[in-house]
Each structure stands twice: as C-alpha cells, then as structure tokens.
Measured scan of single mutants.
Amino acid sequence: SISSRVKSKRIQLGLNQAELAQKVGTTQQSIEQLENGKTKRPRFLPELASALGVSVDWLLN
C-alpha cells in the first residue's frame, strides 16, 4: 500500500514525518494521515515521490 511504502522509504532515508513534510511542502499531520492509511491519494503525490527519490508509479503499485 502507499502508506507502507511511504513509511518504509521515509525511515530508510532517516527522515521523520516533519522532515519529510517540509521537503514535500505539506504538514506533518498530512504525512501522518497518509502513513496511517487515512489518505489514499494525496494531492502532493508528485512532490512526495520526488522527496523520497521514487516514482509516482512505485508509490501507487
């Protein structure tokens, strides 16, 4: 799922939720909701993929 991929990649990069949120241009709460499965397809998906160094396709599939 996107939530597990985001969380595992974030941890692999040594980032906390607030640091990832800053790179993406969103809030820590938005990252938390995404990782908890409350958000399925965030509006900041391209920025998120870029910050994590992955493709949008990788996040979604």
Score class of each variant (00 low, 15 high):
Ser3Met: 06
Val54Glu: 06
Gly53Lys: 06
Lys7Glu: 09
Arg5Ala: 08
Thr39Cys: 15
Gln29Met: 12
Ala51Gln: 07
Ser1Met: 11
Pro46Gln: 13
Arg41Cys: 15
Arg5Gly: 03
Thr26Ile: 12
Lys40Ile: 15
Thr39Phe: 11
Gln17Met: 11
Leu45Phe: 06
Gly14Glu: 07
Val24Asn: 01
Thr27Ala: 06
Gly37Ser: 06
Gln29His: 13
Gln33Ser: 14
Phe44Pro: 02
Val56Lys: 06
Lys23Ile: 15
Ala51Val: 12
Ile2Lys: 03
Asn16Glu: 10
Leu34Lys: 01
Glu19Cys: 06
Pro46Arg: 13
Leu59Ala: 00
Leu20Lys: 01
Gly14Asp: 06
Glu35Ala: 01
Glu19Ser: 07
Glu32Trp: 08
Asn16Asp: 12
Phe44Thr: 03
Leu48Asn: 00
Leu13Ala: 08
Gln28Arg: 12
Arg10Gly: 02
Gln12Ile: 08
Leu60Thr: 13
Val54His: 01
Gly14Tyr: 03
Ala21Cys: 04
Ala21Trp: 00
Arg41Asp: 12
Lys40Pro: 15
Glu35Met: 03
Gln17Val: 13
Phe44Ser: 04
Lys9Asn: 03
Pro42Gly: 05
Ser8Gly: 10
Gln12Ala: 13
Gly25His: 07
Ser50Val: 13
Leu34Ala: 03
Gln33Val: 07
Leu15Cys: 07
Gly14Val: 03
Leu48Asp: 00
Glu32Phe: 06
Gln22Tyr: 10
Leu52Thr: 01
Ala18Val: 11
Ser55Asp: 15
Ser4Trp: 07
Ala49His: 00
Gly14Lys: 05
Ser3Trp: 03
Ser30Val: 13
Ser4Asn: 12
Gln12Leu: 10
Arg5Trp: 03
Ala21Leu: 01
Gln17Cys: 11
Leu15Thr: 03
Arg5Val: 07
Phe44Ile: 06
Thr27Cys: 08
Ala49Val: 04
Asn36Val: 10
Leu20Ala: 02
Leu60Glu: 10
Gly25Thr: 02
Asn61Glu: 12
Val56Glu: 12
Ile2Arg: 03
Ser55Val: 05
Leu59Val: 04
Leu15Asp: 03
Val56Cys: 10
Thr27Ser: 13
Gln29Val: 11
Ser3Ala: 14
Asn16Val: 05
Ser55Pro: 09
Lys40Tyr: 12
Lys9Leu: 13
Pro42Arg: 04
Arg5Met: 07
Gln33Met: 14
Leu45Trp: 05
Gly14Cys: 08
Arg10Leu: 04
Leu34Ser: 01
Ile2Met: 11
Leu20Ile: 06
Glu47His: 08
Leu48His: 00
Ser3Glu: 09
Gln28Ile: 15
Gln12Ser: 15
Ser3Phe: 02
Ser50Tyr: 10
Thr26Ser: 07
Gln29Arg: 13
Lys9Arg: 15
Gly53Leu: 05
Gln28Met: 11
Gly14Ala: 05
Asn36Glu: 12
Arg10Tyr: 01
Lys7Met: 05
Gly53His: 08
Lys23His: 08
Glu19His: 05
Gln33Pro: 01
Val54Met: 05
Ser8Pro: 02
Glu47Gly: 08
Asn16Gly: 12
Asn61Trp: 09
Thr26Lys: 06
Ala18Asp: 12
Gln29Ile: 11
Leu34Asn: 01
Ser4Arg: 10
Ser30Thr: 10
Ala18Asn: 11
Lys40Ala: 13
Gln29Glu: 15
Lys23Glu: 08
Leu60Arg: 09
Ile2Tyr: 01
Ser30Tyr: 15
Leu34Trp: 03
Lys9His: 06
Ala51Thr: 07
Ser30Pro: 02
Leu13Glu: 05
Leu15Tyr: 11
Glu35Thr: 01
Ile31Lys: 11
Ser55Ile: 05
Gln33Ala: 14
Leu48Gly: 00
Gln12Glu: 15
Gly25Trp: 00
Leu20Ser: 01
Asn16Pro: 05
Leu13Ile: 10
Ser3Asn: 08
Ile11Glu: 14
Asn16Phe: 03
Gly53Ser: 06
Ile31Leu: 08
Glu32Ser: 11
Ser30His: 13
Val24Leu: 08
Gln33Ile: 08
Leu20Asn: 01
Ser3Gln: 09
Asn61Ile: 10
Arg10Val: 02
Ser8Arg: 10
Leu48Ser: 00
Ala18Ile: 12
Leu20Trp: 00
Ser30Glu: 15
Ser4Ala: 14
Glu35Phe: 00
Val54Gln: 03
Thr26Val: 15
Ser4Asp: 15
Ile31Ser: 00
Ser1His: 11
Thr27Trp: 03
